[in-house]
């Protein structure tokens, strides 16, 4: 298990130039974008990096050799989840540092609790996405997961755009007023919301990990 984590960490280090470039880009962009942008952007890069370590394992039939090392097939899945969760969280933490640094430099006023609430729910969302993508990556191949990732982000984007458009039309034509009722974010206490979101993330991750372990145990190398 330790060996697998060291291996993944080494793969990550191997892409450090790439990573640095993306993070610099994020810092530059964050000056002109919404402050939560940098959080979602860097967390997503983190997610992609974590998933990419699987592609390295796939290359050159590498799985066969990995499975001759002193691990059980299920251990591979467990190590991958541990590494990915730690990795995504680490990238998210880095993004928070950048976010608040940029906010401080720009001397913008912001409500701390709202920003943090949004950031934390972002982390939960990324963990849920991770729980969907990891088993696909482990079960199928890195190519498949790229397609699925595009579809997921596409659906989210399309959903947001479509929602906005529909709301626009409805309020224009029928004079409907949205958010006149109290915002659900305001009625539920932030603590409950965060706990709820993480509970969902943990449920997703557990089911996903159990599935991945099964996949690895059944597989031939």
């Amino acid at each position: 298990m330790k060996g697998l984590l060291i291996k993944d960490f080494k793969i990550l280090l191997n892409q450090k130039r790439f990573l640095l470039m993306f993070i610099c880009l994020a810092v530059i962009l964050s000056f002109s974008m919404d402050s939560t942008f940098v959080v979602s952007y860097i967390s997503m890069i983190g997610l992609i990096m974590m998933l990419s370590t699987i592609a390295y394992d796939y290359n050159d039939d590498g799985f066969s050799f990995l499975m001759t090392l002193p691990i059980k097939p299920g251990d591979y899945a467990v190590a991958k989840y541990v590494f990915s969760i730690m990795g995504v969280t680490l990238f998210w933490l880095i993004s928070l540092v950048i976010q608040f640094a940029v906010l401080a430099i720009q001397k913008e006023s912001y409500v701390l609790s709202d920003t943090v609430l949004l950031d934390v729910s972002m982390l939960a969302l990324f963990l849920v996405i991770l729980s969907v993508l990891l088993p696909i990556d482990i079960r199928f191949s890195p190519e498949k997961v790229r397609v699925v990732m595009f579809i997921i982000f596409g659906i989210i984007m399309a959903g947001v755009l479509a929602g906005k458009a529909v709301m626009g039309i409805l309020s224009d034509k029928f004079g409907m007023v949205f958010f006149s009722r109290p915002n659900p974010f305001e009625t539920v206490s932030p603590a409950v919301l965060i706990i709820g979101l993480f509970a969902i993330a943990i449920i997703f991750l557990s089911i996903s990990m159990m599935y991945s372990i099964r996949v690895m145990q059944k597989r031939e190398f």
């Binding site: 793969i11 390295y56 050159d60 039939d61 066969s64 050799f65 001759t68």
Partner: peptide, 10 residues
């Protein structure tokens, strides 16, 4: 193994 070892980036 003949065709499989640690990743070649190492």
């Amino acid at each position: 193994l003949s065709s499989s070892c640690f990743s070649k980036v190492f």
